[in-house]
């Protein structure tokens, strides 16, 4: 997470929650594929699983900085992350890929086209994430909207194990309100924009479920090394 201090006040017209979410956004991570390994599906998947594991550590720390998240009980914090971790990873990939045509930016040094995805056995997932990218590109998704939508995806993860639903509902409401407020100020010309953003969440959920299923089958196959946190969250699903 950024080393600078959190913003104490927002400029006029800026939503405080959105400002804090912008500040909390993790730095980008490099994939660093092992140059000693020959290119193969195993190498591609190993690189992606390692990258995902490192991003997960950052995303857990990020979640703690969502205003209101750390007021939830620890068990509910865990439940939300266990349900939404892949949605968060995918939304970050989709946002990074907005300016790239038909390629997915898993990291600045790991950009995958359809041919490479097919070689890694990831064509179906690649196609699904690109559908999400196209949707956000057509809307010209902004960074402020991306960070808020990502926090909403976490708060709205529909875990079956929430203990204090009222508290989680409160978090959802405050994030929803932040998005409504941002859109009201920044996009008065399109009163339906908040709704359009929220309506992308089912596709994100669907794509995430596809990804989890795929990586669960890779795990069962046993040929790709996976780090413990990534494994732990795959097992939680």
């Amino acid at each position: 997470l950024p080393q600078r201090n959190p913003p104490f006040s927002s400029s006029q017209g800026e939503n405080k929650v959105v400002t804090l979410l912008l500040w909390a956004e993790p730095e980008r991570v490099c994939a660093m594929p092992d140059p000693a390994l020959p290119d193969s599906d195993i190498k591609a998947l190993t690189t992606l699983c390692d990258l995902a594991d490192r991003e997960l550590v950052l995303n857990i720390s990020w979640a703690k900085h969502i205003p209101g998240f750390s007021s939830l009980c620890l068990s509910d914090q865990m439940s939300l992350l266990q349900s939404a971790w892949m949605e968060i990873l995918i939304l970050r990939v989709a946002f990074r890929s907005l300016t790239y045509e038909d390629r997915l930016v898993f990291a600045e040094d790991y950009i995958m086209d359809a041919g490479q995805a097919k070689s890694a056995g990831l064509l179906e997932l690649h196609t699904a994430i690109l559908q999400l990218v196209r949707r956000y590109r057509s809307m010209r998704l902004e960074t402020e909207e991306f960070v808020t939508l990502k926090a909403i995806a976490l708060a709205n993860s529909d875990s079956m194990h929430i203990e204090d639903m009222e508290a989680v509902q409160g978090l959802q409401d405050s994030l929803h309100e932040a998005l409504l407020d941002y859109e009201h100020v920044q996009h008065r010309e399109d009163p339906r924009r908040t709704g359009k953003l929220i309506m992308t969440l089912p596709l994100l959920r669907q794509t995430s479920a596809k990804a989890v299923r795929h990586f669960c089958s890779i795990k069962q196959d046993g040929r790709v090394p996976m780090h413990k946190l990534f494994l732990e969250l795959l097992e939680a699903n």
Partner: peptide, 20 residues
């Protein structure tokens, strides 16, 4: 919690949160 010990540990150890 035992089953999800890394997530549990990371949530407990990550830096102090910013709250409203």
């Amino acid at each position: 919690k035992e089953k999800h010990k890394i997530l549990h540990r990371l949530l407990q150890n990550s830096s102090s949160p910013v709250d409203l």
